[in-house]
Amino acid sequence: MSCPASSIIARVALLAAVSVTGLLSLAGCFTERQNEGAQLYASHCANCHGDQGQGLQRLIPPVAGADFVAQRRADLPCIIRKGLKGPLVVNGVSYNQVMPGHEDLTDSQITNLLNFLQTHWGNKNQPYTIREASDLLGRCNGSDGQ
């Protein structure tokens, strides 16, 4: 049994169209996740740390170009989960305000948020893996395993 060439071409064209449609819809699945760190920063952090991570004078420390972000890498997941109070120094400036924790974020959301901070506004630090963030969150009993 043989198929006419036009039938084969039509099937190949249909298969190609279905494949392209599938890939485009799959790309859409990752688009939101890809920008999740920026979205989480905007909704959970920007009100205090500023839209561009600039902080607020001597009241709230910057996260943009912040030595603290690089130097306290192991502490950052727990700081986001549990918050922070007490004095700290960022780029040579002392701060002493309360930062609320974000218990509502999953480990993977914290990872994406941290990776956004690690790679934006002059920060050029190594991204976290989900495993690293979850392990670090375990130190403060903050890992939810998600």
Rank of each mutant, 00 (worst) to 15 (best):
M1P: 12
C3E: 13
S7W: 12
I9D: 06
A10S: 09
A10R: 05
L14E: 06
L15Y: 07
A17T: 13
V18H: 02
S19M: 12
S19D: 00
V20R: 05
V20N: 03
T21D: 05
G22E: 06
S25N: 07
S25Q: 05
S25W: 00
A27C: 04
T31D: 11
T31F: 06
E32F: 13
E32S: 15
R33S: 06
E36K: 15
A38T: 08
Q39S: 11
L40D: 03
A42Y: 11
A42C: 00
H44L: 11
H44W: 14
A46S: 14
N47F: 07
D51L: 15
Q52M: 11
G53K: 02
G53P: 08
Q54M: 11
G55Y: 02
G55E: 04
L56E: 13
R58P: 00
L59R: 09
P61R: 01
P62G: 12
G65T: 02
A66R: 01
D67F: 03
V69H: 00
A70N: 09
R72Y: 05
R73I: 07
P77C: 02
K82N: 15
K82G: 06
V90T: 10
V90I: 01
V90A: 12
V93E: 06
S94V: 11
N96R: 07
Q97E: 11
M99I: 01
P100H: 01
G101H: 07
D104W: 00
L105G: 01
L105M: 04
T106K: 10
T106L: 12
D107A: 14
D107P: 00
I110P: 02
N112R: 15
L113P: 06
F116R: 06
F116E: 07
L117P: 00
I130R: 08
A133K: 06
S134W: 12
D135Y: 10
L136G: 05
S143Y: 07
S143D: 14
D144I: 08
Q146S: 10
